[in-house]
Design a protein around this nucleic acid. Sequence first.
DNA 1: GAATGCGGGCTTC
DNA 2: GAAGCCCGCATTC
Length: 629
Amino acid sequence: MVRQLDKFSTYSSQLPFIWVAFEYYFLKKENEHFFFLCLFVGMCSKTTSTSTTNMDWDINDSNIPKVTHYDHFNDWVDGHVRLVYRPDCEEARRHGSGWAMRNTNNHNVQILKKSCLGVLLCSNRCILDTGEQVHLRPAICDKARKKQQGKPCPNRRCNGRLEIIACRGHCGYPVTHFWRHTEHAVFFQSKGVHDHPRPEAKSTAEQRRLRGAAASLGAGLHQHSTSAGGSGHRRPRGLALLLSRSQQKVNKMVAGHSSKRDKNKGAAMAIVKDEFPVQVSPAFPMMMTPVEPAPMAAPTDYNHQGHMDEGYPPIAAYPTEVHDASLYYHNHHAHNHHQQQHVMPDPSSMMDSSYNLTCDYNNAAGYCQTDVHQANSYPYQHYAPASAPSIAGAPPCDAQSSSGYYGSPSDHHHQQHHYTTHQPMTDNSSSVSPLITTPYDCYSSSHDHLELKYQAAFVDALESQTNTSMETAVTEVSATSNNSSSTTTNDMVVNVDPLQINANLVQQMPTPEFQYEYETNYSNNEWTMTTSGHYTNAANHSYPTAAAVEAYPTDNSLTGCTSDSDISVLPNYCFAACVFTTPPASSEPASSGGAKVEIGTYSPATRHFESYDSGHYQTLNEEPLHPAL
DNA sequence: GAATGCGGGCTTC
DNA sequence: GAAGCCCGCATTC
Ligand SMILES: [Zn+2]
Ligand SMILES: [Zn+2]
């Protein structure tokens, strides 16, 4: 069966353009535009694309194709990805990865297999005022890793303990990486989608370790790691030693194919590790110029995340039509998300959504057959949780559509704590760094995405209502809302509320005239909501009270999470509800006649937050960490 | 001490 | 048999 992706091969050479465009945002605004991160992960180009069709390889293939095009090295591969690196790519030769990957014996000397160790997080999930989170790198060494667990959080103001968050991104097992060396290339294949935050960079961990050693040994330890990535240099092995070792391998290998274990072993040189300075750096330079997307869908490819470093003309040579690959999303109503992708148009033209661009991808890459969303009853069409193939593959999600791709694994069990403990904290460790997140899926794990679901609900609602009807309804409300507390008014508000959320919440939202609008800013890919209406009675600008919040359903009927999820509705549910309201602090009409509520950013000036702790609610003056981050 | 790779052996499916 | 995992060993820094 020919993969449907192949039919898009003619586009693949154009995809790097998209990739670069959104990489920029990822680097610049990873904290506030988590949608871009999703996009970053999702965008990919077929490594060996162009016109070649013999690149449909698998790491286990007996005959792996000879390639002429190579990928740039990617430290943070995530998803079901296949990459081909140059044989002289040092990072590839070192089998490097930003993820903490440990060697795993797969009884195949030709293919080096590694599995992810997850990440070390603070048990309190403490957050710095900078929005940073502790995310240590698990030691590769088992012994060292065990020692890490239970250690005090490096945050001086936190009494938490470090705990390992195991990776279960591949059918419940850790994500695996495979490396295979050939004469002309280094083949890499990743299986699974990390379901945890990124650990700190390898170089950072190494530096910290060295500092710790220096501290324990006194001031005399010389740190020689001053390379760009901060990593220490590792002495390259001598060629003679390499050859000697390799020859030993060859000698050990099969020679006679006598044993069962050796039957798959060839006489070729086994994987030989060559050691060079670690270099952990962004995949792309910061000066990359962002590119405005254009409203036309482009295909995508699940196979690769990198972009070609050969065979493509300069960025400026690409037509703009391809830039709108931004609007992919999963339609989990329909199919196994491993096998189907859809394109979602710009929100402003969603009425004619034709989500029929499917990207079939068989399971050659190792997708989990059992990892299927169980949310067929989920009402929000435009909410599409990120999942394994979606991340690996491409459903670029951006702020325009905000179609459900989450910025990170957010543990709402800890969200309360995030809020209640939100306070300036002093970093006493380099391990505290911006939390690099990965898309997340509440369906495959136990997390909810209330906010995105509300956004999706909003968009869905817009599809089901014409602007005219909405305006009409609002007008009617305005005309009859002399007494904003009247039952009629509230009912009208509920009726025109595209979210159709719990009436207890809706009735207490800012004003009866509250109106939803949204706009897409193509210059920065921000998706924003605009509200308009009258703001004459401050008393009406209240947010849901604790009582109202508590009246909220305690099941997952509105989260979209399956009933068997162990996640319950967030106690401070108001957070999600607030997404679509104008907070009191900024409810004054904007110059354009409406108060702007930004969805993609989380400014305290435009948001209202409440914390919940031990049964008490309190309004926060500070911007809490977004639950997605 | 830790990172990294190799590989024997065990278990599960 | 494939895959996951544990463990010990060796090498290197
Ligand atoms: Zn902590
Ligand atoms: Zn992982």
